[in-house]
Simulated assay, not measured.
Amino acid sequence: MTLAPTRELMDAAAAGGTGIGAFNVIHLETAEALVAAAELAGLPVILQISENCSNFHGGLEPVALASLALAQAASVPVALHLDHAEDEQLALRAIDLGFGSVMYDGAHLSYDENVAATRRVTEYAHRANVYVEAELGKVGGKDGAHAPGVRTDPEEAVAFVAATGVDALAVAVGSSHAMTSRSASLDTDLIAILHAALDVPLVLHGSSGASDEQIVAAISAGMTKINVSTHLNGFFTAAIREYLTANPSVVDSRKYVAAGRKAITGEAARLLELFALLPGTTGTRD
């Protein structure tokens, strides 16, 4: 396999009525774990690198080039996505580096400015056949649209997609970023309305805060791309804590980081299988 275009993975999931996992890369070990999870499950995955991750590593190229190399060597389709880029230039750099998709986040701008900036990124991306995701307002956990009680307006969503030309839309349906408890209540009725109103796939941000049952219901209602980060980070951190407690004299960081990597692999593979269930079925895929 080689690096997969995000468009192909999204189109296949949307056509099949299933979900696809989009999991955030924090560092090399996370990327390795996520690719291993996809290979274990025998399913595609979207690796996401956020603007925050780029800043942490001192630039996009180090973590992006490593992730691209892992994707190109994978035995299953792996796409690379830029997540929550508020910097237009960062989005353009990701396109030039070979990312399959970018999410330009203009939520900090006024509606008209958001439309204009998103349109600029979309036009540049489409010239390179790169897929574009956007969202309306700020996602919960960032003082905005995915905070409890805030919802995407279907009419505004239709107008936004038409004005920007984006390929996928993150919508506010009750989830919130960086939740460490899986207690969010997703508005599946609204998801179904948005799915019927829009001709682009829907994206669920803040999925770490939703239970398995809520996510499956959201996919059945029309959600396609399922973003997960904090939930998997919790598995990584818990495994390292457990290893260091059991091995207090260890000084080789590879030993405890390997435990974290293994923990992510198992849980990410489980989630990929969960998201890929056909509507109305239970258990794992055949």
Rank of each mutant, 00 (worst) to 15 (best):
A238M: 10
A163R: 05
Y131H: 08
A13V: 14
E156C: 00
V216H: 02
D187E: 04
A4Y: 08
E86I: 15
T2P: 07
E39R: 06
D189T: 09
V161I: 00
E88V: 12
R127T: 04
T164L: 03
V63S: 13
A41V: 11
T152A: 02
G21M: 04
V200Q: 05
G42Y: 10
F236A: 08
E113V: 01
E113M: 02
G17C: 01
V139E: 00
T245C: 13
G16L: 04
H205E: 06
A258E: 13
S75V: 01
A38I: 13
F99I: 06
I49G: 09
V251C: 09
Q48E: 05
L272T: 08
S101M: 11
T152V: 00
K262D: 09
S50L: 08
G280D: 08
A36F: 13
R254C: 01
A69V: 14
L65K: 13
H146W: 07
A37H: 05
Q89R: 15
R261D: 08
R120E: 03
G16H: 06
N227P: 01
L34N: 09
P154M: 01
F99T: 07
S75E: 06
Y111W: 02
A162P: 02
E242L: 11
F56A: 11
P279C: 08
A162C: 02
L90P: 13
A116P: 00
R151T: 00
D187K: 04
N55I: 14
H84V: 10
D143C: 05
A79D: 03
G209D: 11
A74Y: 14
E133C: 10
N24G: 05
K255S: 13
I191F: 04
F275E: 10
E29P: 11
T118W: 01
Q72N: 12
T188E: 03
T180Y: 08
E86K: 15
G260L: 05
E156V: 03
